[in-house]
Computed example of a mutant assay.
Amino acid sequence: MHRAVPGVVLNASQPLRRIAAGTTVLALSAVWLGSSAAAAQPAPTNVTATDEVATLQAELLADEEARIAAFEKADRAYRPIHLSSRDTASRVVVAPPAPAKPPVPVKKKPPATTKAPSVAPPSGAAGTVVSWALGQVGKPYKWAAAGPNAFDCSGLVMAAYAKVGVKLPHQSEQIAARGRKVPAGQWRAGDVIHTSGHVAIYLGNGKMVEAANPQAGVRVAPVRGGTAYRFL
């Protein structure tokens, strides 16, 4: 009897081998048991031709069964290794998320300075007005106050012009009504800048000194528009 060949992987064609084996046996039987051969050979007394064919057929089938069993055993041993390697290869490695970027600090606008800038005051009476007003920077704002320790907007202008002998009312609209309007582009240091409900003293270079509000007090700040009036 033939032995099974170990290590062979079972495939889809294995079931067809049984049919092929049976067909081969029948073909061999037909050749071996031809009419001429039967006449030439005397029939054995104890074993018939049919018994020999059946014996050969049984051996072939047993051999095929053993081979199929070996194929199935090899296939069962091969399948877990194959599936494990395939699963490992199909795994997707997920990269960790990138760390978040730190927030960008927001730059805050510097507040208007409360210190007197290095502004060269003009000569004459206008210089006196500007110099005295800058000397009040940092003092508190107080409504209806005109110094010497606190000011409101019209109180600061009134007190500064009093230093050069110009008497002004303690009210922003009335101060503007008494001055000479200065065209845009011709403003000079010492002119009074008027906006609705507020007055300040122009310093030049787009700056003014003002008694702003209770939070800011007397300070130097950028010009915020308005109309200029001249009293000197």
Rank of each mutant, 00 (worst) to 15 (best):
T128K: 15
G217N: 04
P103L: 09
P117I: 01
Q14S: 13
A27P: 00
D51V: 07
S123I: 02
P122K: 04
H194I: 00
A4S: 09
P96T: 03
R86Y: 07
R91Q: 15
D87T: 12
T45I: 08
H82P: 07
R76V: 12
K101R: 12
R188A: 13
D87S: 13
A159I: 04
A189M: 12
A43I: 10
G217I: 01
K207C: 01
V9C: 05
M1W: 04
L10C: 13
W143D: 03
T88M: 15
L83E: 15
L16V: 07
G127M: 02
K101D: 11
S123Y: 04
H194Y: 15
L60W: 07
V5A: 09
A98N: 10
I19N: 11
P222W: 00
A159L: 07
Q171K: 08
A116C: 12
P44R: 02
K207M: 15
V53H: 00
T113P: 07
P148I: 09
N205K: 09
K115M: 11
R67A: 13
E210C: 03
P214L: 01
L10A: 13
P169E: 05
Q57L: 09
L156N: 04
T88C: 08
V199W: 05
E52Y: 02
T113W: 02
A43M: 10
R18W: 11
K181R: 14
G185A: 00
A77C: 05
V94D: 07
K101I: 04
L134Q: 12
G225P: 03
S90Y: 11
D63A: 14
G147S: 02
S13H: 08
T114Y: 09
A162W: 03
T227S: 14
Y141I: 11
I19W: 12
G217Y: 03
V9A: 14
